[in-house]
Amino acid sequence: MKKLFSIIIIGLVVIQGIFAITADEIIKKIEESENLSAIAEGRFEITDNLGTRVTTFKSYEAKNGDMMLEFTNPEERGQKILRLKNEIYLYFPDAVEVIHLQGDALKDRIVGSDFSYEDLRGGESLLDKYTATLDGEEVVDGEQCYKILLVEKKGAKDIIYPKQVIWVDKNLFAYRKGEFYSYSNRESSYTIVKNMAVLEIRQIKGKNIPFHIVMKDTMKTNSSTVFQLKDMKIDINIDPAIFSLEELTW
């Protein structure tokens, strides 16, 4: 009897192990959801020592990850950010040349918000750059979440944050919260530089899209940015020319 009980227990553990989701699988599920073509309109509400101001934008995203964001508020009207794979290009209406952002310039803040240009870089899966570890489950804003630790892989290039901690909604497979770290003085220790809270996730055509995000740059006092989407259309055809540097400059 005792033996049978032990077999059942071991069997349950093995079965749970077989069906338990791994951190890599969670990341893949999120990235699948992000793989879409979309046109969206939204706003950044930026609060800092200067007060609060709003910038609005329209963005286009292709399935391959290319993205073009155009600012539409009067102060920044016509400014465009183009992401092609892992590269960021800036177009300013008063400049005849497109500026290819490289090096430290990628750390600059997008229209003075708490998002930096490097936050926009894409092109690769998180799993190509980070080792993901499932660090248990926690409740975030009343929702059960997986807590995943991401630490940069040795030799990985163009790493923005060497360590990230993300909380992924267990049901929606979408971000609920994130903490982003940089190295502190010693390479083995980290300092939090940004934290992110996703306040609203909407489901569009079966995809879970974060519609309302608050990002805080912890290195700056009294600074936070609310990113809010007003409208989003997904799985629609977008003229590939929108993602062309050539078109950007005409």
Binding site: L90, F92, A95, E97, D108, R109, S113
Partner: peptide, 18 residues
């Protein structure tokens, strides 16, 4: 000559001009 310069604005965002 035409030269393109970039700088940070009053709002700490970037701007460029030729």
């Amino acid at each position: 000559d035409r030269i393109t310069i970039s700088t940070k604005t009053k709002y700490m965002g970037m701007n460029g001009i030729t």
